[in-house]
């Protein structure tokens, strides 16, 4: 017990004194997960709009499928992306394996279902009258879509934030695609796993506290955009 308490105090010390390793890992983690959330948002928000604004056969099934993928195990995504970008895979020539960009790619795929699904839900909640009103005032189809997304912007932002939170806290893709290479692809979650297994509890605890704090901030932001 005393050992844990001592580790806890030293962990706080590591944070307060802005230990170089702690800062470096935190920065990389934020950088990679923000990039993946951004990449995913740029693709998934318009894609969600495309799904919501078109009626086609199997739309319900597709949306159900997407929602099922919300809780896709991160190691499964890790495996799939690994197969895609490993040297003999279809995207092997890009050299993404064991690189930060590979992690960004993998995390973007991981959070895509959440972002697409929640975007569809957000847009579906906008009154159909908004569409009619925009159309009757002379908006083009694209202007109508932009108008509806703007009406739902808080819920769409929440979808992106949730995706970011999932990317930041996942460990499967980061470990399998990034490879946990020190100073290159090592992020908060993979460091915690590694340092704990090596008995380096103070560093683990410091990183763990930072991860929790960031999640807390994300949650506060979520509440804020949702106007609660």
């Amino acid at each position: 017990m005393q050992e844990i308490w001592g580790g806890f105090v030293r962990a706080i010390d590591l944070i307060i004194t802005l230990n170089a390793q702690v800062v470096e890992i935190t920065t990389r983690s934020l950088y990679i997960s923000l990039s993946s959330a951004f990449l995913a948002a740029v693709i998934c928000v318009p894609l969600g709009g495309l799904i919501e604004f078109h009626s086609f056969r199997g739309k319900k099934i597709l949306v159900n499928l997407i929602q099922t993928l919300y809780s896709l195990p991160t190691v499964t995504v890790g495996l799939i992306v690994f197969l895609l970008i490993s040297r003999s895979g279809p995207l092997g020539s890009l050299g993404l394996l064991f690189s930060p960009w590979g992690m960004v790619f993998g995390q973007a795929i991981l959070v895509s279902p959440i972002m697409i699904g929640l975007t569809v839900t957000a847009l579906a909640a906008v009154s159909p009258q908004i569409k009619d009103t925009a159309r009757s005032l002379g908006a083009t189809e694209i202007q109508i879509i932009v108008t509806v997304i703007n009406e739902a912007r808080q819920a769409v932002m929440a979808a992106v934030l949730l995706g970011f939170g999932r990317a930041l806290s996942e460990v499967g893709v980061a470990m399998m695609i990034g490879g946990n290479i020190r100073g290159y692809t090592r992020v908060l979650t993979t460091s915690i796993a590694l340092e704990t297994s090596m008995g380096n509890l103070e560093l683990s605890m410091a990183l763990g506290m930072i991860l929790i704090s960031i999640s807390l901030v994300i949650n506060l932001l979520l509440n804020r955009v949702q106007g609660r």
Partner: peptide, 9 residues
Amino acid sequence: VFQKPVMFR
């Protein structure tokens, strides 16, 4: 102008 108009945000 609709029967029950809606406003844009």
